[in-house]
């Protein structure tokens, strides 16, 4: 690793850290001032979390590279995950079932080609 690359790495690492830490710290100070004035937290705070997770779900579901088999595996995996969650209302078992069903479709598609 050259000195230039090492400095660039340190710039990205510190920049990323500041992007994660400063807004969190700023908002906590802002909220503690509001709570001293008995003002409720802004409504968008409760909205942004679930909506960003939904956006992450969409972004991470797109297979790379895309193919009919990969899209089929995503559809099956997400359906199984949702159904198992509906049955158990837990975190681990639905994810395990979703990954296994996704893997079975990928394996079947590879075996059939």
């Amino acid at each position: 690793m050259t000195t230039e690359v090492a400095i660039a790495l340190l710039i990205v690492a510190s920049g990323t850290f500041l992007m994660r830490a400063v807004p969190l710290h700023w908002m906590q100070r802002h909220l503690s001032r509001r709570s001293e004035q008995s003002a409720p937290p802004p409504a968008w705070l409760g909205l942004s979390g679930p909506l960003l997770i939904a956006a992450l779900l969409g972004v991470s579901s797109v297979p790379s590279p895309p193919s009919a088999a990969a899209w089929g595996a995503v559809a099956v995996g997400l359906t199984v995950t949702a159904l198992v969650w509906w049955r158990y209302r837990a975190l681990g078992i639905p994810i395990l079932a979703g990954v296994l069903s996704y893997g079975v479709v990928i394996w079947l598609a590879a075996a059939l080609v």
Partner: peptide, 15 residues
């Protein structure tokens, strides 16, 4: 196959 754990996790979190 293992990276599919991430979309499955996101789905379970918003379900």
């Amino acid at each position: 196959v293992l990276p599919f754990a991430l979309p499955a996790l996101f789905l379970v979190l918003i379900a």
